[in-house]
Simulated assay, not measured.
Amino acid sequence: MMNVLRLPLIALLTGVLGLAGCSTHQPAALYQLDSGTPGQPAQSAGMAVVLGPVTVADYLQRETLLQRQTDGSLSAATDGRWAGSLSADIDQLLLRQLAWRLDSQRVVLAPAPAGFAPDVQVLLSITRLDSGKNQPAILDAQWRLIDRRGQVRDNRMVHLEKQHDGTTASQVKAQGELLQQMSQQLAVALKPLANQPPLVESRKPEPKPARKGESDKPRIPMASPIRTDMEVFRF
């Protein structure tokens, strides 16, 4: 009789432990940066811009969503992670934002396609992009703008901060809004470089070549009449 009662009890305990295991291994939420609501650029022949290379700090090149602690250390979030590559997500957000703000469909990521002649190239370095439950979202970056002649036209360091309500979702949203804010500042710096002088200056017209056969003929000086005061008499 004892053996008969023991089997249902073991099965019941196994089921309870299985449910407990399922409840403690819930899948983590996946997050992407908030790219805002950029519109579709209308000008197909607008400003030509190459965005990149965009370098991102090593600690951001992973799917782990990091949390900044009060002592400055970083720890992995337990309730979420990035949905894919954060670096690629940053590239696409900046590309869409700049194309919209410049109203140009000629904004491409580096390396530029063959035959693409940019008005300006943006070299961008992002050294920090993170937040924490009790820490604001912070973006540290630096850009350099290279014009079509290869000259540096702008070199700027950016530091931006944004508060949030502490949840992981609000932190991700705040980080995306910081990138949008930087895109706005970058677009303002780019617009004056749209009207650059052409690389090739207009050449002076070359002298017309001599007609065929004219250069082969020897030039004979024209004889001028000689006048004298002598009179001629006829008899």
Rank of each mutant, 00 (worst) to 15 (best):
L7P: 00
C22Q: 06
L145M: 08
T228C: 07
R219Y: 12
W82D: 04
A88W: 08
A187W: 05
E177F: 00
A189W: 01
V49Y: 08
V107E: 02
D34F: 03
E63P: 09
H164G: 05
L66Q: 15
R156W: 07
R81W: 13
D103K: 06
Q151I: 12
V50W: 10
V107L: 04
N3F: 12
E206Q: 14
L109K: 15
G80C: 10
L199S: 07
S202N: 07
T55K: 11
Q196F: 09
L145K: 03
S183H: 03
V54E: 06
A11S: 10
Q163G: 15
Y31C: 03
S35Y: 00
P207K: 03
P205L: 11
C22P: 01
S215D: 15
S44W: 08
C22T: 06
N155F: 13
A169L: 10
R149K: 13
A88L: 10
L123W: 04
L199W: 01
A141K: 03
A223K: 15
Q180I: 01
D130S: 08
L7K: 10
R153F: 11
I138L: 12
D119N: 11
L186N: 01
I10W: 13
D147Q: 07
T228M: 13
A210D: 15
D119M: 01
G18Y: 09
S44Y: 08
D216R: 12
A112L: 04
P207W: 10
V56T: 09
P113Q: 02
D130M: 02
L13W: 01
Q135C: 04
G21I: 00
S44E: 13
I10Q: 07
V56G: 06
Q184W: 04
M2E: 05
D229V: 10
I10K: 05
G150L: 05
L98N: 05
A110K: 09
A29D: 12
L102Y: 06
D140A: 14
P113D: 01
P111V: 07
G72K: 12
Q105D: 00
V107Q: 03
R81K: 14
Q26C: 06
V56R: 05
A77S: 14
A48E: 05
Q69T: 12
R144N: 07
I220N: 07
P41L: 07
D34I: 01
P207E: 07
E63R: 13
V4S: 09
I126D: 04
A223H: 09
L178W: 02
I90G: 03
Q185V: 01
G84R: 11
G115S: 04
Y31M: 03
E231M: 13
Q92C: 02
T168D: 06
P221C: 04
G166D: 15
A210P: 14
V4W: 11
N3V: 09
P113T: 00
Q142A: 15
I226S: 14
D79W: 13
A194T: 02
L5D: 02
L74N: 09
V158I: 14
L186M: 15
A187N: 07
W100V: 01
K173R: 14
R203S: 09
Q142P: 05
R144Q: 14
G52I: 14
L139N: 00
A137S: 14
M2Y: 12
T127N: 13
R6F: 09
Q181E: 11
